[in-house]
């Protein structure tokens, strides 16, 4: 009879620890904005936005294995559509949230449809190209819509049932509500049929095709969903800042999101949370120490991280196993 007990304990143990850890994080999320000043609440807000962006790019790069180094374009579509519609026609920003997501997703479908047959590095450079075209378009102020280099200011603050989000800590709850929702959705997605199909495409898209997976449609869907979430992040960013300008959507921003995904471990949602912490919050914490050499240290740290943990900080188990067996194969080959 004893062994039944043991099984129970084993299966219960980690579950309970997990519940406690999650509850602890939840409490921390609720208390954090109440105890810190506006500056650190703002840091928390940006952290949330980067987690959202990381999750959305993780869907494309981590789950479906499509190299996208122009994710800032979708983020920009979300932010600018909110800003333009709000400042011109005074549509409330929260109403625009689903609209921005839909517009970003549609934009993604339009631009990624003709390029999905490209593989790996070709896709990478084309997405960089799209990102740059969008950034240049924002600077060039087409039809007087984007406000050129100055951007758009006076974006309305969101309001919910008469409550207007004004202070950074108000936004903190708004943004993190979406973060929690997105994380939950991503976890569900990962374990679904769709998530498994994406992973299959990532590992080998020819084999996936042979298994009857409609790879073209699913790749398009990964882009559309990822861009939609990035659009939500853009909307939250625009209403949080009330001012947006093209430099927030530069190539560097896309690089940052890409690094969040790879540093955390591609395909892993906890990895994104850690990755965004490392790429955004840590440099913020050290801002006082090396003011000028911050990015120098940052670059060196990126290289060092990849050398010591090429699979990311919190890799998905499958990835880890694949990397290990490949390494072992290589070592065996070298020995022979």
């Amino acid at each position: 009879m004893k062994w039944v007990f043991q099984i129970n304990e084993i299966s219960l143990g980690p579950g309970i620890a997990r519940t406690y850890a999650l509850a602890g994080l939840g409490v921390l999320l609720v208390i954090y904005p109440l105890v810190v000043n506006d500056y650190w609440a703002m840091v928390g807000n940006f952290y949330g936005i980067y987690v959202l962006l990381g999750c959305s790019l993780n869907l494309i790069v981590g789950d479906a294995g499509l190299f996208n180094l122009g994710h800032a374009a979708f983020y920009a579509v979300g932010a600018y559509s909110t800003a333009i519609l709000n400042t011109r026609w005074h549509v409330p920003t929260l109403v625009l949230l689903p609209l921005s997501a839909a517009l970003a997703a549609m934009f993604a479908v339009v631009i990624s449809k003709p390029i999905l047959h490209l593989r790996g590095d070709y896709l990478c450079i084309v997405t960089i190209g799209f990102g740059e075209i969008v950034r240049i378009a924002l600077y060039q102020n087409p039809f007087g819509l984007t406000g050129g280099p100055n951007g758009i200011f006076g974006i309305g603050r969101p309001s919910l049932f008469g409550f207007v989000f004004r202070r950074p800590w108000h936004y903190f709850y708004l943004i993190w509500a979406f973060v929690v929702l997105t994380i939950f959705a991503m976890r569900r997605l990962e374990e679904s049929r769709l998530g498994r199909a994406w992973n299959c495409i990532r590992e080998d898209d020819l084999a996936a095709e042979a298994m009857g997976i409609d790879t073209a449609r699913l790749k398009l869907l990964a882009f559309a969903l990822g861009a939609g979430v990035a659009g939500i992040a853009g909307n939250l960013f625009a209403s949080n800042m009330t001012v947006i300008a093209p430099e927030s959507f530069s190539f560097w921003e896309s690089v940052l999101m890409f690094c969040i995904v790879v540093l955390g471990g591609p395909g892993s949602v906890p990895g994104v949370i850690i990755g965004a912490f490392g790429m955004f919050v840590l440099p913020e914490l050290f801002r006082g120490f090396f003011l000028r050499s911050r990015l120098l240290v940052f670059g060196a740290a990126m290289v060092a991280m990849m050398l010591f943990r090429p699979e990311g900080l919190l890799p998905v188990q499958q990835w880890k196993r694949a990397a290990e067996s490949r390494g072992e194969g290589a070592r065996r080959a070298a020995a022979v």
Binding site: V61, F67, F258, V262, L263, M302, M305, P310, E311
Partner: peptide, 9 residues
């Protein structure tokens, strides 16, 4: 290593 790591490096 994987294909993503050298890009970040």
């Amino acid at each position: 290593s994987t294909r993503l790591a050298p890009i970040v490096s």
